[in-house]
């Protein structure tokens, strides 16, 4: 049997932690530690050396942001920030401080599990509910998970599709613009997503702009 992904969760509300723990503990994931503030989180992380840390950002005594910065210093990378959907600045701050992904607090269980698995495999995770407003803030921020990483080759056609995805166009719309069937666009899209190792259009936009794939300035 494969080993379980060992997770620590941090949130200042017991009831939230309990819910998360009961939801996550399974034959794939094991919650090995819990914390109700940033300092406790650091202690727990040092003690249990978890695979992934899931932390709320607003906690008393020492916030999640402070904990993320400290964890990053100790070469701990696989951190997921938990936040409410309207806390854009906090999310950007968490990413800049070293989080590898973030989740909005009202997501479904499946998404939490998906995020934990992605980050466990060192893949950035952006909550599916991310809107373009937050995406733009992330793009403008200092956060860059792609520094010093090689970029695969993208064909001119793929670049064109990526640009249209960044402009929030749907596959049928892209098909119309580029004179190809929706299916063909979907095919290209799947390849792009695979090459970039991302999941969502937001992921594509962040990847494309952080890696300067688009020759002109992105739409702001």
């Amino acid at each position: 049997m494969r080993e379980k992904i060992r997770v620590i969760i941090a949130d200042d509300h017991d009831i939230y932690r309990d819910g998360l723990k009961l939801l996550l503990n399974s034959d794939e994931i094991e919650v090995v530690g819990e914390a109700s503030n940033g300092i406790q989180l650091l202690d727990e992380a040092r003690k249990y050396k978890p695979d992934v840390v899931l932390t709320d950002l607003m906690m008393p005594v020492s916030t999640g942001i402070e904990a993320i910065k400290e964890l990053k210093k100790e070469n701990f990378e696989r951190i997921i920030a938990l936040s409410f959907f309207d806390s854009d600045t906090l999310i950007v701050e968490a990413l800049e401080s070293g989080a590898m992904g973030y989740l909005h607090k009202n997501v479904q269980k499946e998404e939490i599990v998906e995020a934990i698995k992605d980050v466990y495999n060192f893949r950035s995770y952006y909550s599916k509910a991310t809107d373009m407003r937050l995406a733009r803030s992330i793009i403008k921020s200092r956060y860059n998970p792609y520094l010093n990483k090689s970029v695969p080759f993208f064909t001119l056609q793929e670049i064109e599709i990526i640009r249209l995805i960044c402009e929030e166009k749907s596959s049928p719309e892209i098909g119309k613009i580029l004179n190809m069937g929706t299916r063909t666009v979907e095919g290209h899209r799947a390849k792009i997503v695979q090459k970039m190792n991302v999941r969502t259009p937001v992921g594509i936009a962040i990847y494309a702009i952080k890696n300067k794939l688009l020759p002109d300035d992105p739409p702001q």
């Binding site: 949130d11 200042d12 509300h13 009831i15 939230y16 709320d56 607003m58 409410f84 269980k109």
Partner: peptide, 18 residues
């Protein structure tokens, strides 16, 4: 409202998923 009550509601939602 934002941090406390919001967290409680999210927690309830989390528990409902079980």
């Amino acid at each position: 409202l934002h941090d406390d009550l919001g967290s409680f509601l999210s927690a309830i939602r989390l528990h409902l998923q079980r």
